[in-house]
Amino acid sequence: MHANVESDEVYVALVSDLARTALPTSIMGVTLAGVGLFVAQALGHAGLFAAVASGVLACLCKLALMVGQTRRLADGSHAPREARLWERGHLLTTIGVASSVGAFVALVFAQPRMEPQMLATGVLFGYCSGVVAHLFVRPVLASGALLLAALPAIASAAWFGDMPHGILATMFGLFLVGALQSVFAAHRKAIRQIGLRLDMAALARSDTLTGLANRLGLREAFRTLSGTGDDSVAIHCFDLDRFKPVNDRYGHAAGDALLQEIGARLRLLVGHPALAARTGGDEFVVLQPGVRHPEEAEILARRIVHALSAPYHLGPETVSVGLSLGFACAPSRTADLEDLVRRADAASYAVKRQGGGVAASGPASGPPRARAGAEPGPARR
C-alpha cells in the first residue's frame, strides 16, 4: 500500500479515531473558559467574551458529537459513506473551536498589555500541540485548524511593528510550518500502521492457499450479519468427490493447484455479502445471507455444483471432480452457525452416499430431506 493512499478500511479506521479525542477537547474547553474569561474580564473587551463563548460552545458540540460516534462504534464500524458524515461533523466543530481560539488570541495581541498576551500564547500553543497530537489522522482537518488558530495570531503580533512582537510573529510562523509538516508525517505513518494491522487481521481470517475465508473469517462474517426479521441465512457445505485420486495420481502440487482453481471459481460465483470459506483439506462452506425464498438457496447450490464440476486444466492434464453439497436455512435473527453447519454437513454426507449432488437439510431437529438432485460419482473419495 502506498504511504499516501487510504483504502476504505483505512479511511474508516482513521475517522473512527476522531471519536477518541474527548479528553483533549475537554481540556481545551476548560482552558479556554478559564483563561479566556479571566483575560476578557481583565481587559473588559466584549469581543473576547464572544470568542470565548463561541469556543466553549464549539467544544461542547464536539464532545456531544464524539459521544454519539462512540455509541455508534459500539454497534460496529462505520461504512465509508457514514464515516464521511461523521468527518463533516468533526470538520464543522473543529472550525468552530479553531476560529474561536484564533479570534481570541488575535484580539489579545491587539491590546498593549503583556500579561494577557503571555496567557494567550499559552492557549495558542496548547491548542496547536493538541491538534498535531490528536487530529493528524485527518490532515486536511488538522491543517485547517492550525491555520485558523495561528494565522490571526501571527498577523496581530506582526501588527505592532516592534522588534519583540516581530520576533514572536516569526516564531509563530516557524512553529506553524513545523506543525503542518508533523501532521502530514504522522498521517503517513498512521496509514502504514493501520494498513499493516488490517493486512494482518485479513491474513488471520483467510486461507493462505485459496484466498477464501477460513473458519475464523466465516465465524466473523456470520457474527456481523444483521437480519431484517423476514429473511433467512443459508449455509452450504460440500467436499470434493474424486479429489484423493488427483493427489495420488498427479501429486500434492496438482491437488493444491486444483484447490486454488476451485477458490478462484468460488470467488467469481459468490459475491458480497455472501462468503466462501475453506474449512478443511477439500471441505468448503458458503455463507448466503439475505435469503427471501428457499428456492434462492437451492439455486445457488446448483450453480456451485455446476461451476465446480466443470473440467480443470492443470498444466498438461485435465481433471474433473464431483461435489456432494448440502445446505440448510434458518431465520436470520435466530440462526446459529454451528447448528446450520451441522445440518448442512449432514445433508452433504447423505447425498454423498447416494452418489453426489445437492441436498437440502430438513428442520433443525430432523434428518436431511430427500436428495434434490445428484450427479454420478463414488460415495466417498
Rank of each mutant, 00 (worst) to 15 (best):
A58K: 08
L60V: 09
M66C: 04
D75K: 07
M66I: 01
A53V: 08
W86K: 12
L57P: 00
A74Q: 14
H90G: 14
W86L: 11
L57M: 05
R72I: 03
R71Q: 13
S77M: 10
L63A: 01
P80W: 04
L85V: 15
C59F: 04
D75M: 04
E82P: 00
D75I: 02
G76Y: 03
L63G: 04
L73E: 12
D75R: 13
A74T: 10
R72K: 11
S54A: 15
R84N: 07
A53W: 01
R88F: 10
Q69A: 08
A74L: 09
W86T: 05
A58G: 06
A74K: 13
L91H: 14
G89V: 11
A83P: 06
G55T: 10
C59G: 03
R88G: 11
V56P: 00
P80K: 05
V67N: 04
T93N: 15
L65N: 09
A74G: 12
A53M: 01
C59W: 02
S77V: 09
K62H: 12
L91V: 13
L57I: 05
L92W: 06
L91Q: 11
E87P: 05
R88E: 11
H78K: 00
C59H: 07
H90Q: 11
A53P: 01
Q69G: 08
V67I: 06
A64Y: 00
V56E: 04
K62M: 03
K62T: 01
A79W: 05
A74F: 01
V67Y: 02
L65A: 11
L57Q: 12
A79P: 06
G89Q: 11
A64H: 05
R88D: 07
A74R: 14
E87R: 15
D75G: 06
L65P: 00
R84S: 11
Q69N: 06
A64L: 10
M66A: 08
C61S: 00
V67T: 01
C61Y: 09
H90E: 12
R81Q: 15
L57Y: 03
L91D: 12
M66R: 02
R88N: 12
P80S: 09
H90C: 12
L63E: 04
G55S: 07
P80V: 06
L91S: 14
K62A: 04
R88Q: 14
K62D: 13
G76W: 02
D75C: 06
L60D: 01
R84H: 12
A79N: 13
T93G: 12
R84M: 13
L60H: 02
L57H: 06
L65H: 04
E87L: 15
C59V: 05
R81E: 15
G68M: 08
L57T: 11
V56M: 08
L73P: 10
G89W: 03
L60M: 08
T70I: 04
S54K: 14
G89C: 11
